[in-house]
Simulated assay, not measured.
Amino acid sequence: MILRFSKDLCNCVFPTRFERMDKEGNIEMIRLVQGTNEVVQSKQDKNAKSKIFRTGFPNIQEGTDVYYQTEIDDKAVLNYLMKTAYWGSLIQEYDPIAVSKKESKAATAEIAVLSEITKITDNIDLLSIGYALYGTEALQYGKDNNYEGLRVNILKTAMEENAAVAKLLADKGKSDYMLLALAFAKGIIAEGEAGNSVVWGDENGATILRITLGERPIDSLISFFDTSDGQEIRQMIGLKIEAATKKATVKASTSKVKTDETSGDKANTTKEKTEETAADKGSAAKAKTEEKQDEKA
């Protein structure tokens, strides 16, 4: 079995015996001795000689953490270590295959999230995720029409905080957090010019809520939703989002119909011109043929 000992247990000589409490709450003496795999002293030969176990210097580093890693086949030592209070915390079993499977699963999940981000075609969806991650800073990408720049930043964040971004992608506006992020992205609500309030995004720009200094607008609104007035505002925001979404859908459908009609008109015009040209050519060819026949006659 491959074991990893944390830095606190590196280059350490373990005591040959110690007391511990068993599952029934009884105190038992644990002792590491030669000639047996039994480590409970009451079950050992009284004359058995003690065995020494020690760890070495750190030989593995992961990030800022260092470990002493070694493979132990001695059953007695394993039984002894499993009885210590360090087992499962400062002493960990290291399974390379299990680690590889875990890393593979994490990599697959990360790739899936990155792929989903690259497939987002709606700029508003990008802005809402961006606002949830970066706040007002994300909205500037929309003002600059630099949505691909925002996408790149979201991708970078997903590489570092994959689970958090995956949660936002799966939310689909179900939580108050993403509902508000979408509302900010659509311009239904906005931050006041002084940065100390949230206002409606229409021409009137009426104040919805004053923001405490140092607090994020989205967090203040979520807390505000716990009040009766806040619940009413939440409902209004939800209705405005629905209306804006329907309006955008109708606009997109109308645009598609106009495009289809234009394409159809162009196709018909082209067809008519082609038919006219063909008819003209046919008439000309017929006339020439008749002229030749007259000449021969």
Rank of each mutant, 00 (worst) to 15 (best):
A132Q: 02
E103K: 15
G214T: 12
Q44T: 08
A183E: 08
T249K: 11
K273S: 03
Q293N: 13
Q293T: 15
T55H: 07
L126V: 11
L78M: 15
W200M: 09
E62H: 13
Y131D: 11
I72A: 02
A267N: 11
R17Y: 10
L9I: 14
Y68I: 04
P217I: 09
S223L: 01
T269N: 12
Y94N: 00
G214M: 09
L78H: 15
L81C: 13
I52V: 11
I111F: 07
K75G: 10
E137P: 12
I52R: 09
K288N: 03
L32G: 10
L133C: 00
K83H: 06
A267L: 13
V40C: 04
E110W: 07
A158T: 15
F57Q: 01
S228N: 11
S223V: 08
L150R: 10
A166F: 08
F14H: 07
L221F: 04
S283A: 13
Y147V: 10
T289A: 02
T274G: 01
T270D: 01
L90T: 14
T36F: 04
R17N: 10
G214Q: 11
T118P: 00
W200T: 12
L182K: 11
T16C: 09
D74Y: 10
N145S: 10
E71S: 13
A48R: 09
K7H: 07
V99C: 08
T254Q: 14
K186R: 06
I208A: 02
I222F: 00
I188D: 04
E203C: 11
G187E: 05
K105N: 13
G173R: 02
T118D: 00
S42D: 00
D294F: 09
S223R: 09
A252I: 13
E19V: 14
E28V: 10
D176P: 01
K119V: 13
T289Y: 05
E38L: 06
S89I: 13
R20N: 12
R20T: 14
A106V: 15
